[in-house]
Computed example of a mutant assay.
Amino acid sequence: MNWNQLTEVSQLHAIKEESFNQPVLLFKHSTRCSISSASLSRMERQWKQEEAGELKPYYLDLIANRPVSNEIAELFEVEHQSPQVLIIQNGACVYHTSHMDISFGNVVENISN
Rank of each mutant, 00 (worst) to 15 (best):
M1W: 03
N2H: 03
W3V: 10
W3Q: 11
N4G: 09
Q5D: 14
Q5I: 14
L6W: 04
L6V: 10
Q11E: 15
H13G: 09
H13F: 09
A14N: 15
I15M: 02
I15A: 07
K16F: 01
K16H: 02
K16R: 13
K16E: 15
E18Q: 15
E18V: 05
F20R: 08
F20E: 08
Q22L: 10
Q22G: 03
P23V: 04
P23W: 03
P23A: 04
V24K: 01
L26S: 04
S30N: 00
R32F: 00
C33H: 00
C33E: 01
S34P: 11
S34A: 13
I35Q: 00
I35F: 00
S36L: 04
A38G: 09
S39I: 00
S41M: 07
R45Q: 15
Q46D: 15
W47V: 04
K48F: 01
E51L: 14
E51G: 07
G53N: 11
G53E: 10
K56L: 14
P57G: 06
L60M: 12
L60E: 07
L60W: 07
D61N: 15
D61T: 06
A64T: 08
R66D: 08
R66F: 02
P67Y: 01
P67S: 04
S69M: 09
N70D: 14
I72H: 02
A73G: 15
E74T: 13
E74R: 12
L75K: 11
L75G: 05
F76D: 09
F76Y: 15
F76G: 10
Q81P: 02
S82W: 00
S82Y: 00
P83D: 05
Q84M: 02
V85W: 07
L86N: 06
I87W: 04
I88P: 04
N90D: 12
N90K: 11
G91V: 04
G91W: 05
G91E: 08
A92I: 10
A92R: 11
V94T: 12
Y95C: 04
Y95Q: 06
T97Q: 13
T97M: 08
T97C: 13
S98E: 09
M100I: 13
M100P: 00
D101H: 11
I102K: 05
I102P: 05
G105E: 15
V107M: 10
V108C: 11
E109S: 13
E109Y: 03
I111E: 02
N113W: 05
